[in-house]
């Protein structure tokens, strides 16, 4: 299924300030704010650290510490297609390692390394909760399960 989502807007301070302002009064607002910023721009721009720190009366170090702690938050725009491949035990038991190797070899890239001129990246994820149909992947916004290496490769090629 081709990717028809419009790319997120480039970093824009007033737009970001609006996002932060909308959520700043929630209890424990930092994670909801970071999620909303990443949802809007696709990543957490370096300038967001200062903006969020000032708004929530935190130090920049505290905000950076939170951004860097969680695997989900990105500091760079992601490629148009992100493939999250489950690497946990249930998928390992069902050929997940072999399927991952087939896909990575096909793309000529390692984990987390953008391939095809920055069009696609394969990232590990630890459990999509599809264990009973393993192996599992989230290809863009589409769940896939029960594939072998060739099927995974074809689905990822089709999604680009």
């Amino acid at each position: 299924m081709p990717h028809d989502k419009t790319p997120p807007p480039a970093w824009d301070s007033p737009l970001a300030a609006g996002v932060v302002d909308r959520l700043k009064s929630e209890a424990g607002a930092l994670l909801p704010i970071l999620h909303a910023l990443q949802e809007t721009f696709g990543y957490i721009h370096a300038d967001a650290i200062g903006l969020v720190a000032e708004t929530l009366n935190l130090s920049r170090a505290e905000v950076h510490g939170v951004v860097s702690f969680y695997h989900d938050f990105r500091d760079k725009p992601p490629p148009p297609l992100v493939v999250k491949l489950c690497c946990a035990e249930a998928c390992q038991a069902c050929g997940g390692r072999e399927a991952a190797r087939t896909l990575l070899d096909h793309l000529g890239a390692d984990w987390n390394q953008p391939a095809h001129g920055g069009a696609v990246v394969v990232e590990p994820v630890y459990c999509l909760g599809l264990c009973a149909l393993a192996p599992a992947a989230l290809i863009g916004d589409t769940l896939a399960a029960g594939f072998d290496g060739a099927e995974l490769r074809a689905t990822v090629d089709g999604a680009q």
Binding site: G28, L30, L31, H35, E62, F69, Y70, H71, D72, F73
Partner: peptide, 25 residues
């Protein structure tokens, strides 16, 4: 509804509370 950000350890109850509070888990 609060949503984590890909940290397994936040399933541990006290790390989870830290995370809701907006901190590192």
């Amino acid at each position: 509804l609060r949503i984590g950000a890909g940290a397994y350890v936040c399933g541990e109850e006290t790390a989870l509370l830290e995370s809701i509070e907006g901190k590192r888990g």
